[in-house]
């Protein structure tokens, strides 16, 4: 009977850990939602910021974040496709493939503030762009590159060999096989990876705070040099430091709720594919 009690105790102890993890998510979402809900209105999304965030809306912050995300996606997509093809098709040597994988793992671990510093040196100073949306997008694109690439690589690796053999058996050249078999079949992987990566990029402040975004006074950028954007995470970051003018408070929570909503929507959109992958792995 001692074995049974040990078992019960163990289940309860680990169960409490799991409950704690889920409770944390609920607590976080509830803390933000309950405070930010009141600020949400049509004009909050379409209005311009006034009185240092105490009044007005977050229109240009939202636009700025979307510009950064679009640029990041445009940066990471070709790079990730290239890496996945090199990994899955052109590199025949196992060791070299592992080298690519290791490089992606390392890049994935690099703290985001270091991307900011890197961008500050290269783009802000050397190229003399000052703060620019393009720098931010490029850095975020580089930052999410491992996520997008790995998702693509996994998808390509999971393609049945017989597709490729059949295609090769028809005498199709590699480029045709890539365009007519590999790419169409792996677009799902690109989409999943991009959604996940963008979910991460949307909330990042560290890479863009020195390179791409300012707190007030920017609208839609017209060029590259000296063309910063406003953004949601930096907006929250700055206001959080000047904490809490109660007037700004409600709007601040509203902005946090919008950011959280954006990020969670992107993660949720990527979820079905990820769960399928996980559950398949569980069965084998």
């Amino acid at each position: 009977m001692r074995r049974k009690s040990v078992h019960r105790l163990f289940v309860v102890a680990t169960g409490l850990c799991a409950v704690a993890a889920v409770a944390l998510l609920v607590l976080i979402v509830w803390s933000i939602a309950s405070r930010g809900w009141a600020a949400l209105s049509w004009s909050f999304f379409t209005g311009h910021m006034r009185e240092v965030g105490a009044d007005g809306g977050i229109f240009h912050n939202l636009i700025g974040t979307l510009i950064l995300l679009a640029t990041a996606a445009a940066t990471s997509t070709p790079l990730a496709l290239a890496i996945a093809l090199v990994h899955g098709v052109y590199l025949r040597h196992h060791r070299l493939r592992r080298f690519v994988g290791l490089g992606l793992t390392i890049l994935n671990g690099v703290p985001s503030i270091l991307f900011g510093l890197f961008g500050m040196i290269v783009f802000v100073q050397w190229l003399g762009w000052g703060k620019s949306w393009l720098t931010g997008g490029l850095l975020l694109g580089l930052m999410i590159l491992p996520t997008v690439s790995v998702s693509l690589i996994e998808r390509i690796a999971s393609l049945p060999d017989r597709y490729l053999e059949a295609a090769a058996g028809l005498g199709l050249p590699t480029s045709r096989i890539i365009r007519s078999v590999i790419l169409p079949q792996s677009l799902g992987g690109l989409l999943t990876g991009s959604l996940l990566g963008l979910a991460r990029a949307a909330g990042e402040t560290a890479p863009i705070m020195f390179t791409a975004t300012i707190f007030a006074g920017a609208t839609i950028p017209q060029g590259i040099k000296e063309s910063p954007v406003l953004s949601l995470p930096y907006h929250i970051f700055v206001l959080a430091q000047d904490s809490f003018d109660p007037a700004a408070g409600g709007r601040l929570w509203g902005a946090a709720l919008v950011l959280l909503g954006l990020v969670l929507t992107l993660s949720l959109a990527a979820l079905p594919a990820r769960l399928r992958l996980h559950e398949e792995a569980h069965d084998t």
Binding site: I28, R200, G203, T205, P233, F237, A240, V263, L264, L266
Partner: peptide, 8 residues
């Protein structure tokens, strides 16, 4: 939970 931004 993994997706919640660090600024939040």
């Amino acid at each position: 939970l993994a997706g919640v931004p660090s600024v939040v």
